[in-house]
Design a protein around this nucleic acid. Structure first.
Lengths: 134, 134
DNA sequence: TTCGGTGCAAAGGGTTTGCATTCAC
DNA sequence: GTGAATGCAAACCCTTTGCACCGAA
């Protein structure tokens, strides 16, 4: 599968990282991952996340300024976006109606082309205030 | 104006930071800013960017993992999004047709509400490959 | 005179790396 | 057996902070 073609090994640790991510409905911070994977040294976590990212298995989510967040790539988790609380920084996956997605995507493709870019994909974050923070 | 109501001074340095940002059609990295503002110590730049951000004048853009990027807030620069090159990381401002924006925004408002969030705004990045990187 | 702003240098904190050891193929 | 993976600790790098001095109201 994905790991094979990247000439990397799918070790027990990598397997467990993927498993933890697949059970979460939100991108996880390094802290979250360390908490859910006791006894894993930070360096191993970072290194393996980098490997998983290169292999196209995981993605680093850029929305939170402070610490890194990771989730499974869309190839594995499906296309989705994030709802982000501007107060506490918590995130939640959301799926936008495909009709809206399509129209947006068409529009963005054209825009990118007119600027001399070849579009690959889009990222969308919805920023708001969650229930707890109100 | 914005600085006044934040009980902060609109000093020469702050003025020049804002001026540099207003002349750019892309968010600027700390490095960019230091280059365009010679002799300004990093610490002063960082401190002033923080002040400008608090005052609602500038915004820290989250898309690049490595170093911070800043641009004028939408209140000053207008609503727009970013075209990002996945190879070199360069960014460019883009404006999406308002009809598409509206439909998207309506849809996102509803989605956020159904998840228990009060939506504030959305962020959208178009990721692709720029002319130079192809 | 007072309080914010500035500069320099040092401290912080998340992330990365060097190196010797262990493990998977 | 060989090259990748792992752990620990040290190094990195961007960013923040302490502190003394300067400047505007």
């Amino acid at each position: 599968m994905l790991m094979k073609q990247a000439t990397q090994r799918y070790t027990a640790l990598r397997r467990s990282i993927v498993e933890v991510m697949s059970k979460s409905s939100t991108p996880l911070t390094i802290g979250d991952l360390l908490r859910k994977l006791p006894k894993v040294p930070q360096s191993s976590l970072y290194r393996n996340l980098a490997v998983l990212e290169q292999a196209g298995v995981a993605v680093r989510v850029k929305t939170s300024g402070d610490t890194g967040r990771y989730e499974l790539s869309e190839r594995l988790a499906g296309h989705h976006h994030h709802l982000v609380c501007s107060r506490c920084g918590s995130m939640k996956d959301i799926v936008v109606p495909s009709s809206v997605e399509k129209r947006l995507d068409d529009s963005l493709h054209a825009l990118a082309k007119s600027e001399g870019y070849v579009m690959q994909h889009h990222r969308l974050d919805v920023v708001g205030v969650c229930k707890k923070c109100r």
